[in-house]
């Protein structure tokens, strides 16, 4: 046997509650983060991801206490992100009980933070979250792709998917690896919240550009979407939120389904 593919429920947390939006908007309450974490852990989730989407300065203490509560009830790894800008933010989260810290805007604004964190905590702690959208305005020095005979490139967005950066996602992925990131959490803004499946093309291109693990995110609406991304790309993990929150599908059932269809998973 060898390494299994990971199924990762994601909890977007706002003011201490789990919420779910669409295209990074229209937020809906989906429950208590500690209870959901415990439930997913018991159902066989391979990891958990928490994204603090409020992430204002006043929220730092809230998220620290939430991380502590979650760490007490689960015995699987978990990643926490949202508003991490400084070494101190990352340290607070890791020392409160998270195994990994996800950085997005903070890393684009200040890429040196990746190397600094790696030197202190080791690269396994550092997840770079990339929010990516297809840009159909063709520019020079970009990796150009074609789909339905339309040309586009993959652009990195920051501030919760609101602000374009002009950064080419393929180049940014390579750069974060070079600077010491241990993993990439790759979200498609185009697909996020649509429940129509992952952006397989995006995921394939990023996975093939780096030699660190990649988590696919954005668009999972049913188990077959996970199957597709695992069968069509060499991605290491698939993240999903709403399909688990609303009791449509339990984690263990989804993993059984993946196994029946030839994906190596932990059961």
């Amino acid at each position: 046997m060898t390494l299994t593919k990971r199924v990762i429920p994601c909890l977007d947390v706002d003011n201490g509650r789990v919420v779910k939006g669409m295209h990074f908007k229209s937020i809906k309450d989906a429950g208590d983060p500690v209870l959901l974490a415990e439930k997913y852990s018991q159902e066989g989730a391979d990891e958990l991801v928490f994204l603090d989407i409020t992430a204002s300065e006043q929220q730092r203490e809230t998220i620290k206490s939430l991380v502590k509560k979650v760490a007490q009830v689960i015995d699987i790894p978990f990643t926490v992100g949202g508003g991490v800008k400084t070494l101190q933010d990352a340290r607070d989260i890791l020392l409160s009980g998270a195994d990994k810290v996800a950085i997005n805007t903070g890393a684009v604004k200040n890429p040196e933070i990746i190397t600094k964190l790696m030197e202190i905590f080791g690269k396994q702690c550092i997840v770079i979250a990339m929010d990516v959208r297809r840009n159909y305005e063709i520019k020079e020095n970009r990796h150009i792709f074609t789909s339905d005979s339309k040309k586009f490139w993959f652009e990195v967005f920051i501030y919760g998917g609101k602000t374009p950066t002009d950064l080419d996602a393929i180049e940014w992925a390579k750069e974060v690896e070079r600077r010491g990131a241990g993993e990439i959490l790759l979200t498609s803004i185009d697909m996020d919240g649509t429940k129509e499946g992952y952006d397989v093309q995006l995921i394939k291109e990023i996975v093939n550009s780096v030699n660190i693990p990649v988590i696919a995110s954005g668009g999972c609406g049913k188990p077959v979407h996970m199957l597709d991304v695992f069968l069509q790309t060499n991605v290491d993990a698939a993240l999903a939120a709403s399909i688990f929150h609303y009791k449509t599908h339990s984690v263990d059932r989804v993993k059984e389904y993946l196994k029946e269809n030839g994906v190596p998973v932990r059961l």
């Binding site: 299994t4 990971r6 690269k123 993993e183 660190i212 693990p213 290491d236 993990a237």
Partner: peptide, 9 residues
């Protein structure tokens, strides 16, 4: 891939 990250038997 490095790191070796995830569940192995």
């Amino acid at each position: 891939k490095i790191p070796h990250m995830g569940w192995n038997d």
